[in-house]
């Protein structure tokens, strides 16, 4: 599903999200991101497209002259998102069933995830190198250990940094998002290179 928002429709969306255009643009990104996660956590196959579908529907209603009187405009977006999700439930179920079939059919799904992990590890090393040493050290310490030891470690780290554990959690979330985006970009570039080297096989899936 491609985004079909034109400039006028986009401007109306921003007006809905707030009088200040910059703040509204920021809020737009936040809402879209939330919607993507909303669909992801419901097991939808293409969450980004579904989020764009929500934005598209709201913009269309605005263009049709519908007045949206909501104390929290973002709530309106999520209302539309639930409708979209219900509409796609059958598709999702089909997707999950198909995925399960794929998992069962796949000769060795563990091998595939292992291969992806190895590739991600190489990219992670590269992306970590771009972080300042103290940040890199913080990330690696934060994700060490397991269970209660990990909890203790993180509490200790927060105390060392003189911040609340919750603040540290959010800071690490942002750092992880940056790293994950970097690794994802790295994997994409590698995939393009690998695809360029790999001879084309007739009938091979390109998804």
């Amino acid at each position: 599903m491609a985004l079909r928002l034109d400039e006028t429709a986009f401007e109306r969306l921003l007006e809905l999200l707030g009088p200040d255009r910059d703040r509204a643009a920021q809020r737009y990104e936040e809402v879209r991101r939330s919607l993507v996660r909303f669909f992801e956590w419901r097991g939808c196959a293409d969450p980004a497209s579904l989020a764009d579908e929500v934005m598209d529907r709201v913009a269309r209603r605005l263009s049709d002259g519908e007045a949206i009187q909501a104390a929290n405009p973002a709530g309106y977006f999520f209302g539309v998102a639930r409708n979209v999700w219900r509409e796609t439930l059958k598709t999702v179920q089909r997707h999950r069933t198909a995925s399960a079939d794929v998992s069962r059919i796949a000769s060795n799904p563990c091998r595939e995830i292992e291969r992806e992990t190895e590739a991600a590890l190489a990219c992670l090393e590269q992306c970590m190198g771009s972080l300042p040493p103290e940040t890199r050290g913080l990330v690696l310490q934060y994700y060490q250990d397991q269970g209660i030891r990990r909890i203790e470690r993180r509490r200790h780290l927060a105390a060392e940094l003189a911040i609340e554990p919750g603040t540290l959690r959010i800071r690490m979330l942002r750092l992880r998002e940056r790293l994950e985006a970097c690794v994802s970009g790295c994997l994409d570039r590698r995939q393009v290179t690998d695809d360029g080297r790999r001879p084309h096989v007739s009938g091979e899936s390109t998804t």
Binding site: G43, S99, P109, I113, T117, A119, A120, L124, M128, V183
Partner: peptide
């Protein structure tokens, strides 16, 4: 987890990233 994340390329990538970060942190330790 496997039902959700192994089903899509982006999900697999997220799982792979989590595993890679865990391994890297373990190596560091």
């Amino acid at each position: 987890v496997e039902e959700i994340y192994l089903a899509t390329p982006s999900g697999r990538r997220r799982l792979a990233f989590a595993r890679a970060l865990q391994r890297r942190a373990t190596v560091e330790k």
